[in-house]
């Protein structure tokens, strides 16, 4: 779906007169390969280059060196520009600054209007998209009357209405409260599951990365770590070095290991911790041991669908 080779991005710094005074390297050689239908999380502290990377995926920025392909299309090739932007939709951080229309449904229709979709088809897409993120009941509302989480879901709907293959979410939850954060992440995961849309989630909330298929950790414009959430979060020390957190339960397991308990390094949920400490069979109500371990994992993945709005 997305393939990046040796990507380098330099920002040109200008002095007060507007002359180029130097360059700042935001991305210094990134290789990345994302298969269709994957849920990818990109972690990294502020200034690690993750937002710059995101903008390359939507052809909002172009490589200084190296190449980015979106669904086989080179972003540097100008004739691909609009097709790339349609195929790889983007949701930004600030919920207020990306809603253009003054009524929810009209905002969702904005993208399809731009690419010349016929009127009837727009209405169909708007309905589908708003239903997919659970915002259909709010379609007539002014965006100003929505909560932060709801606004972000409208933005996601606006992207889906373009029928993309991939959605890039650039810190979509950074300005939201915990409820809003859950709403947005659940909506994204739902789309990934039911429609097979590739999701690239850029975040600094570690809990949001737990369910990803693949996690990339960025630092100083490079990919510092790469692997499944389990592999990544097992490296508590390394994550701290990169100025990032690990989920609290993983941290607790890490502390317990340090104190001499023999438990696995890659614990991601409280159920896994309980199993490790008490033995899977210890819980009288739980089923077989192998089952239980699996259940703990998949439960985390499935859980959000139950409470979809």
């Amino acid at each position: 779906m997305i393939k990046i080779e040796k990507l380098i991005h330099d920002y040109i710094q200008r002095d007060d007169e507007g002359n180029a005074a130097g360059t700042f390297r935001a991305i210094g050689g990134v290789d990345l390969d994302v298969s269709p239908g994957q849920f990818i999380a990109v972690l990294g502290h502020n200034g690690s280059g993750k937002s710059t990377l995101a903008k390359h995926l939507n052809a909002l920025l172009f490589p200084t060196e190296g190449t980015v392909w979106v669904d086989g299309m080179d972003t540097k090739d100008e004739k691909n520009l609009w097709e790339i932007r349609r195929e790889a939709g983007m949701v930004f951080q600030n919920p207020d600054n990306q809603i253009i229309a003054q009524v929810v449904e009209e905002d969702v229709g904005f993208g399809p209007e731009n690419i010349g979709v016929p009127t009837e088809e727009i209405w169909k897409r708007v309905e589908e998209s708003l239903k997919a993120v659970g915002m259909w009941v709010h379609r007539k509302k002014s965006p100003n009357r929505l909560s932060g989480g709801q606004k972000q879901r409208v933005s996601i709907a606006g992207v889906i209405a373009m029928q993309p293959k991939c959605i890039v979410l650039d810190e979509p939850t950074a300005m939201l409260d915990p409820n809003g954060r859950k709403e947005v992440i659940n909506a994204a995961m739902q789309l990934n599951r039911t429609k097979g849309i590739t999701i690239i989630l850029i975040t600094h909330y570690m809990e949001e990365a737990i369910n990803a298929d693949q996690v990339f950790v960025m630092d100083r414009g490079k990919i510092a770590m790469q692997g499944t959430p389990r592999e990544i979060f097992a490296q508590v020390e390394r994550m701290k070095e990169l100025q990032l957190d690990v989920p609290q339960v993983t941290l607790l397991a890490y502390e317990l290991r340090k104190k001499g308990l023999n438990i696995p390094v890659s614990i991601l949920t409280k159920e896994e911790l309980a199993d490790a400490l008490m033995g899977p069979a210890a819980a009288s109500e739980s089923e077989g041991s192998a089952e239980d371990d699996k259940a703990a994992q998949s439960e985390e993945k499935e859980a959000p669908h139950g409470n979809q709005g």
Partner: peptide
């Protein structure tokens, strides 16, 4: 702490 990364 709104909007800051873990270190911030």
């Amino acid at each position: 702490t709104a909007g800051l990364d873990p270190k911030g």
